[in-house]
Amino acid sequence: MPEEDKANILTPIDRRRRQRTAALVFGLFLALVLAGLATTVLAVNNGRNYQRLVREFGLENYLLPAPPPPDLRIGRQKAQPPAGHYPPWLLRAGLERSAVFERALSLSAEERCDRLANERGIEPAFTGTDDEWECLFFEEFGTTAEPASLFVQARGKEPDVVRILRLKLSLLDPPAERSVLDAAIAALQRFGLPMTPETRTYLADKILARTDFTSIVENYRMTFSREMTDARRYNLLIQPDLQTVACGEPPPTPPDRGNTPTYPMPVGCLALRGIPAQPQSAT
């Protein structure tokens, strides 16, 4: 057999080697094409797509150039406005209202119950046995077969200790819903539990919005929620936890500093110090 015929005969190993070489060349060519396309896509719009991709993976501190320093000139610096994410109350210079002493109403349990009577002539019912008392008030709204209603129940100990105040709002008649909500807020105002204006506003906003909540505010545990069996009925439960400290008696240490209670104390117990007189300078 001639030598040139032997050179044209390819063994299986030679064929596989040529196939691998062709596949490698095609793979490199395809990778270059894809890299070029990716570079073109990332480079358009002044590299906006590239910057977005880098920020998506959190690598802007490594793959993006540092921002240029601000152009500061001595004597021409301007106060920058605060960032928009700061809450307004944190930037407010003064208090929302001045701190004042408010005189708490000294009412007996029966007098407090009588205050629930409204302009429609609906009177509450007060009962007292031994040292326990209970006050009930019920008012209907609307003329449908199943009218909306407001039920108030207060219980406590003599002479004027309130243990629990419960309001049940039955919003069964849609046109009368707002009347029931307003009547519930008015009943809380008339009953006269000692609260700051902010707490009363917070409570009224939650009732009007019919927002379920559980809060501990000013030694009151408040819970407002709808009934599980009927979504049209809501219950507001207020449980006071009032404690009084006598003059000269140190308050007990609360178990949790985050829930430090407030103790009512007469103003006469406060230690007042006079301003020392300033010596007059000799002339």
Results as ranks from 00 to 15, higher is better:
149 S>W: 03
135 C>K: 13
145 A>V: 09
165 L>W: 07
102 E>T: 09
159 P>F: 08
125 A>P: 04
165 L>V: 04
163 R>N: 12
112 R>V: 00
133 W>M: 01
125 A>H: 12
138 F>L: 10
163 R>V: 03
104 A>I: 13
124 P>S: 00
125 A>R: 15
113 C>M: 01
165 L>N: 02
149 S>P: 00
158 E>Q: 13
133 W>V: 00
110 E>W: 10
104 A>V: 12
149 S>R: 05
109 A>G: 11
118 N>V: 02
146 E>A: 15
154 A>G: 04
166 R>A: 02
134 E>F: 08
107 L>R: 11
151 F>D: 04
165 L>M: 01
109 A>L: 06
138 F>R: 08
103 R>S: 12
111 E>Q: 15
102 E>G: 00
115 R>M: 08
115 R>K: 10
151 F>L: 11
159 P>N: 09
121 G>K: 07
143 T>V: 11
122 I>W: 01
108 S>A: 03
111 E>D: 14
114 D>Y: 05
167 L>Q: 08
114 D>G: 10
126 F>G: 03
160 D>V: 01
151 F>C: 00
148 A>K: 10
127 T>Q: 15
138 F>E: 01
145 A>W: 10
135 C>Y: 08
143 T>G: 11
146 E>R: 15
108 S>V: 11
142 G>M: 07
110 E>K: 14
117 A>W: 09
114 D>F: 03
117 A>E: 14
128 G>P: 04
112 R>Q: 14
142 G>L: 04
159 P>A: 12
114 D>N: 14
123 E>V: 09
161 V>N: 05
140 E>N: 08
157 K>Q: 15
137 F>W: 00
132 E>F: 11
119 E>T: 05
128 G>E: 15
120 R>W: 07
102 E>K: 00
106 S>E: 12
139 E>H: 06
147 P>K: 01
120 R>H: 07
140 E>Y: 04
131 D>C: 05
110 E>D: 12
134 E>V: 15
107 L>Q: 09
148 A>N: 01
102 E>C: 00
129 T>N: 09
126 F>M: 06
148 A>P: 05
167 L>C: 00
108 S>F: 08
149 S>C: 01
152 V>N: 03
143 T>F: 14
148 A>V: 04
143 T>S: 14
125 A>M: 03
118 N>L: 03
122 I>F: 02
164 I>L: 12
121 G>D: 06
128 G>H: 14
143 T>I: 11
133 W>Q: 01
162 V>G: 06
161 V>Q: 09
103 R>I: 12
162 V>R: 06
136 L>M: 07
121 G>V: 02
132 E>P: 06
120 R>F: 00
